[in-house]
Amino acid sequence: MGKVDKGDLGRFLPLVDRSATPVVDPRGAEVAADPAVVRLAILDDLLNMGRANSLWPLTFGLACCAMEMMAAGASKYDLDRFGAGVFRPSARQADVMILAGTISKKMAPVIRQLWDQMPGPKWAIAMGGCTIDGGPFKYPNQYAIVEGADKIVPVDIYIPGCPPRPEALIAGFLQLKEKIKAGRKFNR
């Protein structure tokens, strides 16, 4: 599981090499040599498995991409297969914030507040061009849009598209799973 079979549709050939993902084990080799640390690391891996397989998103849509997010949660695409279908209305119980849509400057403080209300290990997914860097609304001298969700919250996964298909969101979730399993600590 987790490996996305690309089929014959091919991928982009990007300017930057995306295959070198930031998924690296933060535990160095010398740390792994200590048996106690290794035992803890196993527990850590167990917890990470739990976290990776139970990503509860926040019921929270910003604009048109939210429609695709809802479609991903509905019967045809069914995010619940990966344990990510429990959309929690309260930020206190959510793990993932799916930023789905244009972030206006009026909305930005609210998003930051919601992010601060989320507990513990938490992740953010920027879905759609607008949340990546302003998208179609980015032009010289624009005054209404936050150009990129990463200006207000630390984003883990970027999904381009206008809007991305539900499959892209699921692919994003799978990549987030890989990232969590690779062993991040309580670093936020």
Binding site: L47, M49, G50, N53, G83, V86, D95, Q117, F186
Partner: peptide, 16 residues
């Protein structure tokens, strides 16, 4: 084991 994963996650969540 889905709910077990949920429990593991909830145990390790921050208590606010």
């Amino acid at each position: 084991l889905q709910t077990l994963a949920d429990m593991l996650k909830l145990i390790s969540k921050q208590l606010i």
